[in-house]
């Protein structure tokens, strides 16, 4: 097959040319690629600093071709604040899972948002603690079986899942709070656009931006990757509706 066709899709430059440790079918890989595509498109690789959480994406710094720091569990937004406040010219994003952001790190998240820090938070919500082997997370759905809710999450004893976008969008410091997914190409396109806008919001200094990605965990959900996409579409999104939760006026006029 001659390679005469026009190259229309390849690994973005900002995504390191390495094999990731993520499980087969895990959406982390897709979100990583989309972030890298946006970094390339906006031409900001040389002034972007990413902050990895503790969780499955703790090794994210191996997968991006920009400066990266590894934060303590849940503290990425505080670290991002320190970086951004001393180097406003840098584009700073945190990449966090639901245990990191919606459990131990909620306080750091809420106050970074309330302060309107000009940082971008990419929040991967797959309703389980992945790296540690599938425990219940604050976002685990009612009735969902995990290794620490073996009889299914019982809301009477283990409470209700946390809807982060609805929570954070109440804070006036926020400029762009949206929830997307990546379970099919149409959604992946919308997610990519949301990530681009979030970075642009930061670069225009309009305030705090967060993109929540309703994601999957084939391994710890005990499903095949294909089945996990269905679970995201039918069960996860029912509880975590996709959409825009806060888009400040100035964001709408962004090119």
């Amino acid at each position: 097959m001659s390679e005469d066709g026009e190259l229309v899709f390849r690994r973005p430059a900002a995504l390191s040319d390495v094999v990731t440790h993520y499980c087969p079918g895990c959406m982390h890989g897709i979100v990583h690629r989309l972030i890298a595509e946006v970094i390339d498109e906006l031409g900001i690789r040389e002034r972007t600093v990413g902050i990895a959480p503790v969780g499955c994406s703790v090794l994210a710094y191996h997968y991006f071709e920009c400066d990266f720091a590894e934060a303590a569990h849940g503290r990425a937004p505080a670290m991002a604040t320190g970086i951004k406040r001393t180097h406003p010219e840098l584009v700073v994003f945190t990449y966090q899972g639901d245990g990191d952001l919606a459990s131990i790190g909620t306080n750091e998240l809420i106050h970074a948002a309330a302060r309107g820090e000009n940082i971008t938070v990419v929040f991967i919500n797959n309703a389980v603690y992945g790296m540690t082997g599938g425990q219940m997370a604050p976002t685990t759905l009612p009735g969902m079986v995990t290794t620490s809710s073996p009889y299914g999450r019982d809301v009477k004893r283990q409470g209700y899942p946390v809807r982060v976008c609805e929570l954070v969008s109440q804070l006036d410091g926020t400029a762009y709070i949206v929830r997307r997914s990546a379970y099919k190409p149409a959604e992946i396109r919308k997610l990519r656009q949301a990530l681009k806008i979030a970075f642009q919001v930061q670069m225009a200094e309009l305030g705090f931006s967060l993109v929540e990605v309703v994601s999957n965990c084939p391994t710890n959900w005990g499903m095949t990757p294909k089945e996990s996409l269905r679970f995201v579409e039918e069960r996860m999104i029912a509880y975590y509706p996709l959409g825009d939760y806060r888009v400040r006026d100035e964001v709408k006029t962004l090119k």
Binding site: V49, I51, A69, A71, A72, R75, A78, M79, A80, T81, G82, I83, K84, R85, T86, H87, L90, N107, E108, I110, H111, R115
Partner: peptide, 26 residues
Amino acid sequence: RAFVQAESEVGAINMVYGAACTGARA
């Protein structure tokens, strides 16, 4: 210069960590 009253001492020390990662005196 940069000043933030953090949400907690946990927040404060991690802000210091972030700023210091850029080489700033924090």
